[in-house]
Simulated scan of single mutants.
Amino acid sequence: MSSLAAASLLACFTGEALQGEPCSADADCGPNLRCAEGGLCGEFRCPATPLVLPTFAPDLTLIVTSTASMGKSLADDPNTTRWQQVLTLVDQIGAALGDRVNLGLQVVPTLSPQTNLNPCDTDARSRILPGPDQGPLLNESLPQSPPGLGEHALRAGLDLSLAGFALTDPDDLRPHAIVLISDRPLNCSDAAVTSQDIVELFDNELTPRVAELAAAGVPVFVVGIDIQPGDGVAPFPGAKYEEVDPQLAFNALADAGGRPRSGATRFYRPEDAAALIADLAAIPPAFADCRVHLDAAPAYPQRLVLRVAEHNHRVQPDCSSGHGWRYPDPKSPTTLELCPVTCADFRATRALTIEQRCPSE
């Protein structure tokens, strides 16, 4: 979660109009002055910094590989296809979490007339932006059977998912997470030169890209569909996907995503749906700790004012009354902790305003 910009908290306007004269309201005072406590114009205000959230729920995007390989029967159940497992899993996630998180979807690749020319082509047309109560929508948007086109364009799906988060949460205030649901092969390598390379080469940049997202605070939960241990090797530069052991490849993805399972199989399987849903449900909402982080310390920490639910609050030493806010570390006033009652008000109104007030000159 990114911190709240503090640039507007660092400087104060100056002005002399009506300074020190009596007042009953801010409108009685001249430019850049307010009616301070005591009924005198004097304390300056900096521009207020608002923080507004339409929802505190995390944004969660499912990336689903929809390719011909998903039409294959499961190794241990010839009467069930991989795609049927995907549909069941998406339905389970939607039913369990649709009213608790903002669910979105990115299907890879994007089917279009160009798919035959570039089977890795993926764009936002196959994306549903994260939103509340969208569990049924995700499942309804997936076809009942996979197409006979396309390859595993998962890196493109990751980038489009990040772009979707930026659209739904431009201030980066809510937690974000991705669930990557795929079978093998993991191809669409940037190293591909020929059309055959696109299909055959293992994408060695996929795992590093997943690791970048996790390091940036976007965990990636990896679900492997019909992934069986093979006699291949660990991924290596220039490898063909058939040379790579599927279990080793998906374990590496899960480790990179920052949410691996314990044991020999570190990715989720469809039969682990209950565990996956529990782990996703454990992602906290925005401001679960009732703390607001600033990019820099305010110019006058003791004169910072938070407005929540029509009430102004100045800093106080503790939260024993339940109202107001405090600095958890007064020596480093870049984190503000809302007291329980004020935090509850913030969650009810989904908005607060931070305002720097300055000593009169």
Rank of each mutant, 00 (worst) to 15 (best):
A5Y: 06
S8D: 14
L9N: 01
L10D: 05
A11L: 11
A11R: 15
T14A: 06
L18N: 10
L18R: 13
E21A: 06
E21Y: 07
C23W: 07
S24I: 09
S24K: 11
S24M: 08
A27T: 15
P31A: 10
G39Y: 11
G42Y: 05
F44L: 05
C46K: 09
P47E: 11
P47Q: 13
P50M: 11
P54C: 11
F56P: 02
D59W: 13
D59K: 14
T61M: 01
G71A: 13
G71S: 10
K72C: 07
K72E: 11
L74N: 03
L74D: 01
A75V: 14
W83T: 00
V107K: 00
V108N: 00
L111V: 04
L111C: 04
S112D: 07
Q114N: 07
L117A: 12
N118L: 03
T122V: 01
S126K: 03
R127Q: 15
L129S: 06
G131Q: 10
D133N: 15
P136F: 05
L137P: 09
N139K: 13
S141T: 12
S145G: 08
G150V: 00
E151C: 03
E151T: 06
L158R: 03
D159Y: 09
D159I: 12
L160S: 00
G164E: 05
F165C: 02
F165R: 02
L167E: 09
T168P: 01
P170F: 05
L180C: 02
N187A: 03
A192Q: 06
V193W: 14
Q196S: 13
N204T: 15
E212N: 12
A214N: 08
A215Y: 10
G217L: 09
I225Y: 00
I225V: 07
Q228T: 09
Q228C: 02
P229K: 06
V233P: 01
P237I: 07
A239H: 10
Y241L: 04
E242L: 04
E243L: 09
V244D: 01
D245W: 09
A249I: 08
L253G: 02
A254S: 08
A273H: 10
A278P: 03
A278I: 08
A281D: 15
A282D: 12
P285L: 04
A286E: 05
A288D: 11
C290G: 03
A296E: 12
A297V: 07
A299M: 07
P301M: 05
L304I: 09
V305E: 12
V305I: 14
E310Y: 15
N312I: 06
S320K: 13
H323A: 12
D329Y: 11
P330L: 08
P330N: 04
P333Y: 11
L336Y: 08
L336F: 10
E337I: 15
L338D: 00
P340C: 15
V341D: 15
T342C: 15
T342A: 14
C343T: 14
A344M: 13
D345I: 14
Q356K: 04
R357V: 13
R357S: 13
S360N: 13
